[in-house]
């Protein structure tokens, strides 16, 4: 799981253009959205949905599920681990 978490962090930094940030700067359990943690916005959420489909073959059609999946990098990794097709 730790390996997947690190991989996801690197991908998130790249696709969301988080300039100057390294995987170590991202707490595994910190909230990804809202005022704390990564403070991502709605466009970032859409970009993460594309990332899941492109890199892991996961189609996330349910917006409510996305809220749980993208709580933190750890919840995202757990979801990827269970649902990935590639």
């Amino acid at each position: 799981m730790e390996e997947l978490i690190l991989e996801l962090k690197k991908e998130i930094i790249e696709v969301l253009n988080l300039e100057g940030m390294t995987p170590d700067d991202i707490d595994n359990d910190a909230p990804m959205f809202g005022d704390e943690g990564l403070a991502l916005d709605s466009i970032d959420a859409l970009e993460l949905i594309v990332l899941l489909e492109k890199n892991y073959g996961i189609k996330l059609a349910n917006a409510a599920a996305g809220k749980e999946v993208f709580k933190s990098v750890r919840t995202m990794a757990e979801y990827v681990s269970k649902n990935r097709t590639k």
């Binding site: 696709v15 253009n17 466009i43 970009e47 594309v50 489909e53």
Partner: peptide, 9 residues
């Protein structure tokens, strides 16, 4: 085919 929302905006 992966339309990028961040590019599209």
């Amino acid at each position: 085919y992966f339309p990028s929302p961040a590019v599209f905006v």
